[in-house]
Nucleic acid binder design. Structure first.
Lengths: 131, 131
DNA sequence: ATCAAGCTTTACGTTTACGTAAACTTACCC
DNA sequence: GGGTAAGTTTACGTAAACGTAAAGCTTGAT
């Protein structure tokens, strides 16, 4: 299999505009070990994969994950898969996350139904009010 | 329609055990205006609806909502629906929340698929390792 | 040459959501 | 009546995730 390397590089301000976050946040994520840009002189250079990681960080935030949790997810992506023991531990962690996510799916669906009910109720009152 | 009033009452420690949180948290939620228990002397008494609210608070937390956001959801439940203007504003807020939740659904489904991929990959490597 | 734009590090400040401890009241038990 | 179990208020402490200067380097444009 041939690795397709995208040559794209980004400055910190480019990424901050693209994702509508501050450069402070991006540097903070690096501080927490979630990003590892290279340097040109002392200036940070972000690769395509850095950009992907940033997108995943923000997705994690939308889901209420802490940066630490997202970091552990990254470890799952990158983990050493050489020992059976490691693999078993990994799969256990994955199962945990999956059940966590399924709980969230249930929560969201429940809340969506409640909001739909309220909305319908509002709509009814509104039509009787304006008739 | 007949209102069915459940007569159940709970102490703060009962609720803290039932939901596996500290009494500190429960009092904090009250401080933030999300719970309004009655008092017997100076002791807090929680009703059935307080209990339901608490459950909703915790669901909100699982979804990454701040207490403020959850409070605004409560306002939607309780809101004054007498004016058309109010109703319209409410329905706009509901639409916002719904699209927020749909984004989260997409995020979760994407992450679930990624985790499934990793898991499958782990499983394959594991079988080749142990054969 | 200077000057603004964009980058850097360092560091103190802020919000949210509690943790933790102190000091006190009330109720019940032996 | 002394203890202890559960409740209370008050208040300082803390972790996470940044916000917000401050002070300095670099580099292209005027």
């Amino acid at each position: 299999m041939i690795e397709k390397e995208k040559l794209a590089e980004y400055s910190i301000s480019e990424l901050s505009k693209k994702f509508d976050i501050t450069t402070r946040s991006i540097r903070f994520y690096e501080d927490q070990g979630l990003l590892t840009p290279t340097r040109k002189g002392q200036t940070r250079i972000y690769s395509q994969s850095d950009k992907v990681r940033l997108k995943l960080i923000l997705r994690g935030k939308r889901l209420g994950f802490s940066l630490g949790e997202t970091g552990r997810l990254f470890e799952l992506y990158d983990a050493d898969k050489s020992s059976a023991k490691q693999l078993t531990i990994m799969m256990e962690l994955i199962e945990e996350k999956k059940s966590d996510l399924k709980q969230k799916l249930d929560d969201i669906n429940a809340l969506l139904m409640e909001l739909n009910d309220i909305e319908k109720n509002c709509q009814e009152i509104l039509t009787t009010l304006t008739k």
